[in-house]
């Protein structure tokens, strides 16, 4: 279980609290939606859950242990713009090898991508294709939870449906839990087991 307990956060001691005393849990194999308006702290909460930001108070636990300080994190975060999440000078196989130790061709199959992409550079793929590469990279053997922050907001409906169908199959297979952040209520209603509003979580 990925558990955030009594999390509070502000960007500066003189500024207002963005998150105040928030608790939430994600179980393996479960998809939890997180919605809210822009500026309400959805991404901030995602970054805290993934260990990119340290909360001012409260703690994160993964299956009863704190997040590791070094090495591969069991909680992986995926962002809105895949082209900013990869090294533009690396070929796809090198990008994937950051997260995937084993057979990359199998992974490409699972994600409906042509194995010939492995030799290309990021700018030679479309946004939807590159986003699937980024998701594939995050599904290494130690990954237990995914934080998906608006990962299909800039894509058309067909590509969005493609990507979420792939994620749903892959996480069921690996028993991974997902925190899906989005402003699109229709999307969250479709993919989530449970949907939370950040305003209701904030105390």
């Amino acid at each position: 279980m990925l558990e955030g307990r009594n999390l509070s956060f502000r960007y500066h001691p003189k500024k207002d609290w963005i998150l105040k005393n928030i608790s939430l849990t994600v179980s393996p194999g479960q998809v939890i939606g997180l919605k809210g308006m822009s500026g309400e702290g959805k991404t901030t909460l995602g970054k805290i859950m993934a260990g990119y930001l340290r909360p001012d108070s409260g703690f994160i636990q993964v299956d009863k242990y704190p997040l590791p300080k070094k090495g591969v994190s069991p909680v992986q975060m995926i962002f809105q713009h895949p082209e900013l999440s990869v090294n533009p000078k690396w070929r796809i196989h090198k990008i994937l090898s950051e997260g995937i130790a084993g057979n990359q061709t199998l992974l490409m199959d699972e994600f409906g991508l042509s194995p010939s992409f492995l030799n290309r550079y990021p700018h030679e793929l479309s946004g939807g294709e590159l986003q699937r590469i980024v998701i594939g990279r995050s599904l290494g053997k130690d990954t237990r939870y995914l934080i998906a922050d608006e990962i299909t907001a800039m894509l058309d409906a067909i590509t969005q449906a493609q990507i979420w169908h792939t994620i749903m199959t892959s996480i069921k297979k690996r028993n991974i839990g997902v925190l899906a952040i989005s402003h699109d209520e229709n999307l969250l209603n479709r993919i989530c087991d449970d949907c939370l509003h950040i305003r209701d979580l904030n105390n």
Partner: peptide, 21 residues
């Protein structure tokens, strides 16, 4: 039709493949 039916509120049906380069 595929674009319309791929919306989350209308069935969320994907179409395999990608737009040609």
């Amino acid at each position: 039709r595929a674009l319309w039916q791929a919306l989350p509120q209308n069935g969320f049906f994907p179409v395999s493949g990608t737009q040609p380069v």
